[in-house]
Design a protein around this nucleic acid. Sequence first.
DNA 1: AAAATTTAGCAACAGCGTTGCGTAATAGAG
DNA 2: CTCTATTACGCAACGCTGTTGCTAAATTTT
Lengths: 369, 369
Amino acid sequence: MTRVTADVAFLRGYNQALVMAVGRTARTFERATVVEATGLTPQAVSKVIARLTADGLIRPAGLRRPGIGKPAVVYELVPDSRYAIGAHVARRTLRLVLVDLAGTVHHSAVSPLPRDFTPEQLLDALSAGIDTMAGIGDLRSRLTGLGIGMIGPLDHANGLVRDAHGLRHWHDVPLREIAEKHLGLPVHLDKDVTAGITAEAWRHGTTFGDAVLIMVESGIGGGFWLGGAAHRGAHTNAGEFGHTVVDLTGARCVCGRHGCLEIVHQHAAEAGDIAHAARVLAVGVVNLLQTLDLAHVVLAGADLLRHSQTYLAAVTEAVQADARRAAWLSTRVALSSLGADVIAAGAAMQILDQHYGIPELTHSLISGS
Amino acid sequence: MTRVTADVAFLRGYNQALVMAVGRTARTFERATVVEATGLTPQAVSKVIARLTADGLIRPAGLRRPGIGKPAVVYELVPDSRYAIGAHVARRTLRLVLVDLAGTVHHSAVSPLPRDFTPEQLLDALSAGIDTMAGIGDLRSRLTGLGIGMIGPLDHANGLVRDAHGLRHWHDVPLREIAEKHLGLPVHLDKDVTAGITAEAWRHGTTFGDAVLIMVESGIGGGFWLGGAAHRGAHTNAGEFGHTVVDLTGARCVCGRHGCLEIVHQHAAEAGDIAHAARVLAVGVVNLLQTLDLAHVVLAGADLLRHSQTYLAAVTEAVQADARRAAWLSTRVALSSLGADVIAAGAAMQILDQHYGIPELTHSLISGS
DNA sequence: AAAATTTAGCAACAGCGTTGCGTAATAGAG
DNA sequence: CTCTATTACGCAACGCTGTTGCTAAATTTT
């Protein structure tokens, strides 16, 4: 996935991905657009465009007449040249989405999962759902893979579910391996919130700055996008944002500590005071901004989206009140542009990102040490 | 500093830096060591080593006889081939250190700064201090530059001090520019805590995972190392960790919110209960671990180091109690290996890192958006 | 002395982005 | 209509990267 050393193959993939990122975010583009956005020479862009065109990933889409001189060729991404399927595995439901290369969600389907479902039951549900979706336009050959977004804890690097919270049959399950064997597709496994923030980042392209996706849905989690990549932490366990203490004298949380954001928020919500619950969440969000200085806050999750305007207002107001101290601090707060599909869609985009996104160089061979 | 596109010059710099990272962390190394650590072919490593040797950055240091066969050449870094000077600018003091390529601190000197010092006064102090240090071994020609670690807020990308907290004459001062002109050296400006965590990362090499440096010294700040690079956030303002709310019903902080970690900690410390203050800090540290899943926590800052064992014990215990929930969660807690020099030394290493560290590819042209 | 083993580097190569320069396509001026 | 200025684009040569194939050197073992 990631590599340590850099060679010419890395060069090719990297610069190619830069051009793809332009194509994904701009409806159409031409050689000069890419030159300006990347700093590559025009000749180099020509070569990259030729390769991408040969692969069917982009195609000419007319001419632009610059008033005087030879017209410029306008290109566009070919969205249906590649697809990926994303799965959001929750405690009782499986959501599957079909996403194209441009990040557009084409189909979305939710199916129930048995209480305390086993890995086998999940695989059967996945298999059936994928067959249905891949059969729609006979796009099996253009299917890049399956992304799975799931509650943790899990081990992203090894595709291992350590201990899906609240599910009995999920201890140290090598889900990626068995899913790849069972489904015959490349599979990517990640935490739900990390998949979610990837969706936002993929759709925004290279201009997307440091960001967090806040998810309120049977708990509070955060997915991070820092320095142009998903941040998973040393053991794929980043994002347990709900278990940060905001009230030292607060009630005891299931995690053993007192006054976790999650329990304080939950008590407010259960008392019916959603506005108060939203303000509690907003305190947590501002804590994140103080710590990490983020450019984007994206709000998601079923429990939050049920009262989306209340949460959006509370968080926006808290963020602005905080930024008022300094004019140059600007953070955009928004609801997830993909609604309930964001996790599943993000999981799909992680697969696309592996193939057509900007490759990374891992410096460290020893993970988490 | 960072670049967008990748070309062969990037390849060279990147792979060269990988080898330098090996040399910096291992006392000696040979071709086979590098091959294993990087995945480069032996022939490629030979070429890189030849280039580095020609530049005087590494040198042969004997032979290793493998029992049978031709002996392998053992190499070592040449620490005194390059130097950098680091400055830690605090409210009343200027600390200057001389650091060599290996990250060893050779000289350290503290001088007082006038109350409410001006940029000119700082430049004069820097100039005098640098002349003294650079004169020691006539290493002016081997001096790579000056790194400045300073309280914020500031703009790292543009080398601008926005508003040094508590200093009247520091509003929108283009410190990097005027210092480069005044001193005739490349200058790097960064937040103190970010410089500090860079020191730890530089000394540990590529195996250093996600980490935070907690600094308690007239306030509480955090410097982050995430994904192999310093994390500064969208506006170089990451690390205001002291202004995260840990007690919703707590006292009002100077920042306007209630129950910030900093004010709660301060009250405990002023009451003389250092152990309690340390436990409050530990709550904040565990909050960070929950959020970011870090591999290292480094403790620093004058106020903390005065009671280093108390803080170390409290944080270690809190971290271990938290990790007890899961055996695979491991975080190392330690005091800064450089003590009071850590900020200044880190600032110096940021200069070295720019030249001999692993280069990064910035994806985004638009910063902070 | 000969064979086996390990290390190191020369030489040729494919492929990257870059540079230099020629060519195609258009609008406007004379 | 013709010529010129302008803009877009690509062929060809180039310098450089890491890779591959193979030879040479240095040492221990047989």
